[in-house]
Design a binder for these strands. Structure first.
Lengths: 300, 300
DNA sequence: GTGTGTAATACACAAATGATATCAATTGAT
DNA sequence: ATCAATTGATATCATTTGTGTATTACACAC
């Protein structure tokens, strides 16, 4: 019993005429008759009552017809599903992201992705960079939006957003209004930074910037998210090191300044397991590249 | 793309090993590999990722697996349905019946039938005998419970219940208490009968009984149901001709008497179109015969 | 009675399924 | 590092099976 038999049966049931049904099936009548006979024999069910002049469905045939149609429809759907899944138009995509991505690029990308691929269920997990690396290696997430660099050679990364960092001062801090801000000005300033574990790239860059100038910055507080850093700055605890986009938080107690001639980079990358072959992931990455380009073309 | 391919795919997906899958399918490995390749090619979808050492489902394969299982299950169900329908264990049975059958045999048979064939939907229509004949010929009902005789040679009938008729007197009627009741006693009695159109068998038998005695009964009122006849009797309109089972109506104003030596028959038959091949009908008739025998064995 | 329409049958051929033998590649053990 | 074992792919062949052509059997209509 094969799908072919069902197709033949449905067609004969619709035409109630072996000749016409055969024509519709682009075959000749004798093999069609034979296939129907074979179907009936295998099922142990008489589906048609043939007088020499008419063909009609038996009761069993009448009840079999809608079922057979459904099997064929189901098969078609199974095929569709598989094809869509292969094209990344159907499926599941689990994305890890660092908290800061929430304020910037993530909403825009997700919105656009859901518009283009409404049948992919997107699952989001806020995770720190190292947690994302673990999750990627374990296959718990398909993609990470994280702060490079990461070490594993099994993971491929690609920058999504390359911004700069700024220093966040309490608004009445003496250096907040200074014309040019140099490294030397910052020698004894108490700093608040995101901990190395959470954002090693920034932490190390920050340290080496000062080491090049011959001293070590005074880090008085570490935090797990840059939003928290801004909070501590506005509480007057110290000067924060945060991505320039932090300005979007609109904290009226904080003022943002760049260090003159010494940019600190704040890069957000997307990371994937190289061998992950979820087609939805490829689509997501392609889309992200496109969205990113659109944005980088427009003046910041 | 045939069901065979789906079976093969599901098995390989379950085993993730072509050799073991082939063994389970009672075939050898090479043709199995080939069939899967063929399936993938026809679908245009890679279902498995084969390294030389492992087999695993692709994302598309993962989404296809449950769909494929469902197609196979649906096919099985289609087969079941057809087989049950052929055995009369599934389907639809439309039964016409005369009102009087409600009080007697019908409830018992229907109850037993529904117990034995719960998946057949039984549809009941109260119809007069001639309406049932029309409905049978049109195929609107599968079976009729009606009063013979009927004329059409396309219809087969078989008695379900052979009872006798009685005369129904108002309880204070002079003849109600008479020892022996003869035709002669009834010469001028006003009769109430069920109209010829509704119950031709009884009507004609009633008339010929009197014609044999040399006179015509005085019919003062006709009715469409015997229950109505009893009602008219208890209102004192006349003497009713009704099946003996009318006694079960427990009308305290009516008294029932037989005509001595001249039985009037009240037969209820089941009738079917000879060419109707609804298997549920055959089952119903078989069951009815059995139930009827059980009943006729017990003393009435 | 003859002719048309319809499904079934007989037979031949082509296509495809499955089996056997073999290969290539990877893994794990000695 | 080399070798054996495992595993899926490939090649080739036999068998089965699906399909086409020709024909038959039967019913119904004129």
């Amino acid at each position: 019993m094969e799908l072919r038999h069902l197709t033949y049966f449905v067609t004969v049931a619709e035409e109630l005429h072996f000749g016409r049904a055969a024509a519709r099936l682009q075959m000749t009548q004798p093999p069609l008759s034979k296939q129907i006979q074979q179907l009936e024999e295998e099922m142990g069910v008489k589906l048609f009552r043939r007088t020499k002049r008419h063909v009609e469905l038996t009761t069993a045939g009448e009840f079999f017809l809608p079922e057979a149609r459904q099997v064929l429809a189901q098969m078609q759907q199974a095929l569709d599903t598989a094809q869509k899944a292969q094209r990344g138009e159907f499926g599941r995509l689990v994305i890890g992201f660092v908290g800061s991505a929430t304020y910037d690029i993530l909403p825009e990308i997700i919105r656009e992705y859901r518009r283009q691929f409404p049948d992919v269920s997107v699952i989001l997990h806020e995770l720190s960079t190292p947690d994302q690396v673990d999750a990627l290696l374990d296959g718990r997430i398909d993609m990470g939006l994280l702060h490079p660099p990461i070490s594993s050679s099994l993971i491929a990364t690609e920058p999504v957003q390359t911004g700069v960092c700024a220093l966040s001062f309490p608004k009445n801090h003496p250096l907040a209004g200074k014309d040019k801000l140099t490294i030397e000005d910052l020698r004894d300033v108490p700093f608040i930074v995101v901990s190395r574990e959470i954002w090693p790239g920034l932490y190390d860059e920050f340290l080496s910037l000062f080491q090049d100038a011959g001293f070590t910055p005074r880090i008085v507080q570490e935090a797990t998210e840059y939003q928290m850093v801004v909070g501590l700055v506005s509480a007057g605890i110290g000067v924060g090191v945060v991505p320039a986009t932090a300005e979007k938080l609109f904290n009226l107690e904080a003022v943002y300044r760049q260090i003159d001639g010494a940019p600190l980079h704040a890069v957000l990358s997307m990371a994937r397991l190289k061998k992950n072959s979820n087609p939805a992931l490829d689509q997501f990455i392609t889309l992200t590249r496109r969205v990113r380009q659109l944005n980088s073309e427009s003046p910041v």
